[in-house]
Amino acid sequence: MPAGTLYRGREGMWSWVAHRVTGVLIFFFLFVHVLDTALVRVSPEAYDDTVAIYKTPLVNLMEYGLVAAILFHALNGLRVIAVDFWSKGAKYQKQMLWTVMGIWIVLMAGAFYPVLQHTLRTLFGS
């Protein structure tokens, strides 16, 4: 560990870093998302034309990334709450992180087809 730093590495620090990064990314998407939804007050065509961007393969893949970021932030957020309010939270923070990652992998596997089905159908037919 380099001298003069508070960063301790391992599960605690890296989950904290991932929580920050996903939080900032989600917040920036939220600005864009409120703006695109506001187009329903302009015209149905303006809204539908913009939503069409969300149906392109690249942006559809980014939606899967958004789901990944939100699921991690949500599950790890519950872990942070447990660390703060549960008397044994700090003791079991590592086990809770690996539980979070396990649930995350299962949910991401389950979300793969439903979220990406639009692209999979357009690219590979039916």
Partner: peptide
Amino acid sequence: LVLDGGVSKIGF
């Protein structure tokens, strides 16, 4: 994004 066809159904 998940139920009922994912993003396909979204529109005005």
